[in-house]
Design a protein around this nucleic acid. Structure first.
Length: 271
DNA sequence: CATACATCCTGTTCGC
DNA sequence: TGCGAACAGGATGTAT
């Protein structure tokens, strides 16, 4: 489930633990997640000092003073456990620092990934090369979307999930943003007016900011040894609320399966 | 190129 | 009560 807000919250939580620290141990505990760990991950990262942490799309970036960037993806079920008292099943990668901190990348479903690229080549890394603008990039505007979606007959929901259109959105926040903008997830993407796209851009900003703030407010919990990441779930207007009253009209939230994915929406007010 | 769909993975939830 | 089926879904590969 980690989408942009959860990855951003994770990066902000890792920053005070890792930034400036030297890595004394970088140890995979199995060979692979979604794909194999880089063979030289331990060799290249052990002894390096972490200089910065960042995020691109749904990936977290850990820069070192050796000119390497470790890129992690949390997949569906991934999270970093901070200072765990003991290692658990699915702790697939362990980091230790010269400041006495320990991190475990735990990912039961193993949809996540860890890659290692040269920092000066991060933007050319294949998964990033085709990735669209960040939602808060000044270039992500209604005009941009109008151009990008021109002629597209696919539903707007599918287009927003496409990382080449905009980076960082997943099923949950796409559903929420379309609800806020009162746009049906089934609407043909190329036939949405500029005015509606302006509402959509604003809705995406609104829902992401609220989710990041909700996550940020729970950083203290996240940092607990057995801590949980704070999610936005209690504030979802439509996601997971099939059959419940719509928060914005007299309608009822409905669900349909689209390519095996659930879409939640209010047919009464999303047109 | 655009679109649709299958695949990966495992803990949790649901129905019979 | 138990057990199998369904479900969660991001990235990627294949098919049309």
């Amino acid at each position: 489930m980690p989408e942009l807000p959860e990855v951003e919250t994770t990066v902000r939580g890792l920053r005070p633990v890792l930034e400036g620290a030297r890595l004394t141990l970088v140890q995979p505990r199995r060979g692979d997640l979604r794909r194999p760990f880089p063979e030289d991950l331990g060799q290249r990262m052990t002894g390096a000092r972490v200089t910065a942490l960042g995020r691109r799309a749904k990936y977290g970036l850990i820069d070192t003073d050796r000119g390497d960037t470790m890129i992690f993806h949390l997949g569906m079920s991934g999270r970093w456990r901070v200072d765990p008292a003991e290692l658990l099943p699915h702790d697939h990668l362990i980091l230790e620092t010269d400041t006495g901190r320990r991190l475990a990348l735990n990912d039961p479903r193993r949809f996540g990934s860890v890659d290692l690229v040269r920092t000066d080549s991060v933007l050319a890394w294949p998964p990033f090369a085709a990735t669209g603008p960040e939602p808060f990039d000044p270039g992500f505007t209604a005009a941009y979307l109008k151009d990008k979606l021109a002629g597209r007959i696919a539903p707007i929901k599918a287009m927003l999930l496409d990382q080449k259109v905009v980076a960082g959105l997943g099923n949950i926040y796409v559903c929420e943003a379309l609800f806020i903008a009162r746009i049906s997830p089934k609407r043909e993407a190329g036939r949405i007016s500029l005015a509606k796209l302006e509402k959509l851009v604003a809705a995406i900003h609104e829902v992401l900011i609220a989710a990041i703030e909700a996550g940020g407010s729970t950083l203290r919990d996240y940092a607990r040894p057995d801590g949980e990441l704070g999610y936005f779930s209690k504030q979802f207007a439509v996601y997971g609320r099939e059959g419940e009253p719509c928060a914005g009209c007299a309608g009822v939230v409905r669900r349909y399966a689209d390519g095996g994915r659930s879409t939640f929406w209010c047919p009464s007010c999303q047109k």
